[in-house]
């Protein structure tokens, strides 16, 4: 296995591989920037919606039906985008039971197997979710489009699992600080 690897990396394919890697990395970062912007927007909207529903009910005695009903959907959007980012930062919960006792090589290869597996699972759900969105639109018309977050989530996670084969994850400073790697500290 290892000989094959070194053979591969010493051939002429190296520059091509490098530029592909760079492209994927840039795509990944761009995706993350969009996700962060949408998260901040959803968050602001969520807080505004909840506050508005309190004010309208207690001050003006007006119940606000539709606004507050959309709040859990906003949370779903935020959570799924956040979960997709968590994959980029390698911060998902995993069972760290066995690999700590294994060699570097085993860990590297198991990482690849896991990435391929994860991409396959997410791709399967991506296809399923497209049908789901179609059904939602058939049932609720325009509001059904809210479910579009599912294919977005499964698409981006499938991509990130594949990207992990080529790009190393973002470094994330440990400790209790809230701000993450890119917060400019």
């Amino acid at each position: 296995m290892r000989e094959y690897e070194s053979l591969l990396s010493s051939t002429l394919t190296l520059p091509i591989k490098k530029s592909v890697t760079r492209f994927i990395k840039r795509l990944d970062d761009a995706l993350a920037r969009i996700e962060k912007c949408v998260i901040v927007a959803c968050f602001a909207l969520l807080v505004a919606a909840v506050l508005f529903s309190i004010l309208s009910r207690n001050l003006f005695h007006l119940p606000s039906h539709r606004i507050f009903e959309s709040a859990p959907s906003l949370v779903l959007w935020m959570a799924l985008l956040g979960a997709s980012l968590a994959l980029k930062q390698r911060r998902h919960i995993r069972l760290e039971l066995v690999l700590r006792y294994c060699s570097q090589t085993v860990r590297k290869w198991s990482g690849r197997v896991v990435s391929l597996f994860g991409a396959a699972v997410m791709a399967g759900l991506l296809i399923t979710s497209i049908d789901f969105v179609r059904n939602e639109i058939a049932m609720f018309g325009g509001w059904g489009w809210l479910a579009i977050i599912f294919p977005i989530f499964f698409g981006s996670t499938a991509f990130r699992y594949l990207a992990a084969l080529m790009v190393s994850p973002d470094s994330h400073p440990s400790g209790d600080s809230a701000a993450t790697g890119e917060s400019g500290r």
């Binding site: 968050f43 959570a79 799924l80 979960a83 809230a178 917060s183 400019g184």
Partner: peptide, 18 residues
């Protein structure tokens, strides 16, 4: 600082909610 704290809380709660 606030935007990055928002993103951080979305990542944390997202990993749980998913």
């Amino acid at each position: 600082q606030l935007p990055s704290i928002i993103v951080e809380s979305a990542v944390l709660s997202g990993a749980i909610i998913v």
